[in-house]
């Protein structure tokens, strides 16, 4: 007997679309979650890195480059997460977020300002009347080493102060020791505590180390209700990389196809130049597809990136590089 004949289904739309009967599965037990995550196809590290490197050779020119720079700007979560943060610094960052380049009034505003919970109210006040959102890290960011109760209070505090978005960290220790149910339950609990606020789940890929772990953690977070999956805190040695983001985008694409729910991806930490940012957009474009080329579904967590985007934006318009002092330092 020969194998059943197979055909490629011809479909004119490139868009990722849910398969018939798609819905988010209800995770009822740790065993079920474990078998689901273990059932995901593995990632071949050499192949994934080669794919990312190949996409990095795409060359964006002219109109594409101009549009991509503006898109990248509109995707930035302008971030300050330092012990030395003050209301003054946050106020100045908010002004920058609203009008990144006052001399070029058509410059798009960034997506959000990202701060610690105690500065959410300050940011909220300074962003009033704008479309820029307030994001807050929470859950004992960046290590996540606190009791569930403390983490939930941290979240509630940020949301009460007016955060539109909450960036939580997963318990990497629990994930790495196989206590997947614990990680899942925590994301579910934080999701609940967020109320109307959007939840970004930080996987801290630098501590998960393998791409297989990144893929499984991505699915775990999405199944638990994440609105976004985010690479890293920016506080460890290895943060966002192109291949890691590729693997997360593949997960978001596959999750959308099998469940019908679109989850965003945020690359955070270490992305400093326009060149790098455009490479990420190419990877988004050719992995998850054009639907993700939107601040609602892709973000950069960065601070210094904005100034390079502004310099390159001016270069695209005038043909010459502006002196760096024409751009505000923060």
């Amino acid at each position: 007997m020969s194998p059943a004949p197979l055909r490629l289904v011809v479909d004119d739309e490139r868009a990722v679309r849910p398969r018939p009967g798609a819905s988010v599965p209800v995770v009822e037990s740790e065993a079920q979650l474990r078998s689901l995550l273990r059932g995901l196809a593995g990632v071949d590290a050499v192949g994934a890195e080669a794919r990312a490197a190949k996409l990095a050779t795409r060359s964006l020119k002219r109109e594409t480059k101009r549009a991509a720079i503006d898109l990248a700007l509109s995707m930035v979560d302008l971030t300050t997460l330092e012990g030395a943060d003050t209301p003054g610094r946050v106020a100045s960052l908010c002004a920058k977020a609203r009008r990144p380049d006052p001399e070029e009034p058509d410059t798009p505003a960034v997506a959000a300002v990202c701060v610690y919970p105690d500065l959410v109210a300050t940011a909220r006040a300074h962003l009033a009347g704008s479309d820029v959102r307030v994001a807050s890290v929470a859950t004992a960011f960046p290590s996540g080493r606190a009791s569930r109760a403390v983490k939930l209070l941290d979240v509630a505090d940020a949301v009460a102060a007016g955060a539109d978005e909450v960036d939580m960290v997963i318990d990497r220790g629990a994930f790495l020791s196989g206590r997947l149910g614990e990680v899942f339950d925590e994301v579910v609990a934080v999701r609940e505590a967020c109320g109307p606020a959007h939840l970004k789940v930080i996987l801290e890929v630098g501590e998960l180390v393998t791409y297989d772990n990144v893929r499984r953690a991505s699915w775990l977070a999405m199944l638990a209700g994440a609105d976004f999956i985010k690479t890293s805190t920016g506080k460890v040695a290895v943060n966002a990389t192109l291949p890691t983001t590729l693997v997360m985008l593949e997960a978001a694409r596959d999750f959308a196809e099998s469940t019908g729910r679109l989850v965003g991806v945020k690359a955070a930490g270490g992305i400093r130049t326009t060149k790098e940012a455009l490479r990420y957009l190419v990877v988004v474009n050719e992995t998850a597809g054009s639907a993700w080329l939107d601040p609602a579904l892709f973000r950069f967590g960065a601070s210094s990136l904005v100034n390079d985007l502004l310099l390159q934006r001016r270069k695209q318009r005038s043909g010459a590089y502006a002196r760096p002092d024409r751009i505000s330092v923060d």
């Binding site: 020119k61 594409t64 898109l71 798009p108 479309d131 054009s290 080329l293």
Partner: peptide, 18 residues
């Protein structure tokens, strides 16, 4: 995120880079 303006481009249609 309904209140955010639509993104500036729907897909990256790469301009020629010869």
């Amino acid at each position: 995120m309904e209140e955010r303006p639509a993104s500036t481009l729907s897909a990256l249609e790469y301009d020629p880079a010869p």
